[in-house]
């Protein structure tokens, strides 16, 4: 290796310091929320600036109170349901479409164009709302799961991956008399576990995090997913309390930490899955950038 000049050494040190700071900046907001969520509520409500360690003694009262919040729990259960339904439907359809477009169909090119055109141009939120409304889907679980279930990007990376399967594998099965369904189930899907993991992940994360179209299509509280409940608690400051005035003031004090608790409760599952998520996520973006 060629010796580095002085300028290059200074740059290297500076670079490492700056990148470390960027890394810290990515973590500090989450750390702040974690520490605040287990701090003493009254101390937190008086604190200005960052909370980098639990203040006024560690307490789990915020979590205990949050977990008693019925809307939050219902939101959790609903979101899990929507993730299962939406991901199940979306991934199944994406596999069908990916397989279809990876075959040499007479109308394959036309169908691919039909799908990719929607990436360039769409009707916009108002006409889409009108379609959902005309179908009688307002205030139904279908409105939360269906309208965003498919993505052209996922279909295209699935197709690319299916296309790379050696044709010989399928020819052998075809000679044995296997039809398309057999080939899809016993050859294509088993050798494409990685790409299926990627699209499952993309779709699950997207459904877990989405809030906007639910806010448009659904007014029934019992259908609310987690993010809508979070929005009420964290951003609109309406912790839907309460009967007595006494209880309200206690809740107001607690609210200082409850919003951090609900933030953490929504991030924690993701943090546990993160090592798995980020591995497949990088694979997915790479496949996508090579050419969808």
């Amino acid at each position: 290796m060629i010796k580095r000049t002085r300028g290059e050494k200074i740059f290297a040190v500076f670079n490492v310091i700056l990148l470390s700071l960027i890394g810290l900046a990515c973590l500090i907001p989450v750390w702040h929320c974690l520490c605040a969520s287990i701090s003493d509520p009254i101390t937190v409500s008086k604190t200005r600036g960052l909370i980098l360690w639990p203040k006024g003694g560690v307490t789990t009262i915020g979590y205990a109170k949050s977990l008693q919040n019925e809307s939050l729990l219902r939101g959790y259960v609903n979101t899990i349901l929507y993730v299962i339904l939406g991901t199940g439907f979306g991934v199944l359809m994406t596999i069908f479409a990916g397989y279809g477009l990876s075959r040499n169909l007479l109308f394959g090119g036309a169908i691919a164009l039909f799908l990719t055109f929607t990436m360039m141009f769409n009707g916009g939120i108002i006409p889409t709302y009108m379609v959902v409304r005309s179908l009688g889907m307002l205030d139904t679980r279908a409105a939360i799961v269906l309208p965003t279930a498919l993505s052209v990007f996922n279909i295209m990376i699935t197709r690319t991956s299916f296309k790379s399967i050696p044709e010989g594998l399928m020819d052998a099965a075809r000679i044995d008399g296997a039809g398309h369904i057999r080939i899809l189930v016993s050859i294509v899907i088993p050798v494409s576990k990685a790409i299926i993991a990627v699209i499952t992940l993309f779709s699950a994360v997207q459904i877990w995090n989405s809030w906007f179209h639910t806010a448009i299509y659904v007014r029934k509280r019992e259908l609310y997913p987690l993010q809508i409940v979070l929005r009420e608690i964290v951003l609109q400051n309406t912790s839907q309390a309460s009967d007595a005035g006494e209880a309200t003031s206690e809740l107001n004090q607690l609210h200082a930490i409850i919003r951090y608790c609900v933030i953490m409760l929504s991030i924690i599952p993701m943090l546990f899955l993160y090592p798995f998520i980020q591995k497949y996520f990088v694979t997915g973006v790479m496949i996508g950038s090579i050419k969808g």
């Binding site: 359809m93 397989y99 279809g100 169908i111 141009f121 009707g123 009108m130 379609v131 498919l150 899809l184």
Partner: peptide, 19 residues
């Protein structure tokens, strides 16, 4: 297999375009 996918795109992408 492609049919439900095409129907989905007609309903949620192409109908809004005409809308």
């Amino acid at each position: 297999l492609l049919l439900p996918v095409i129907i989905w795109y007609i309903i949620f992408c192409y109908l809004p375009m005409f809308g």
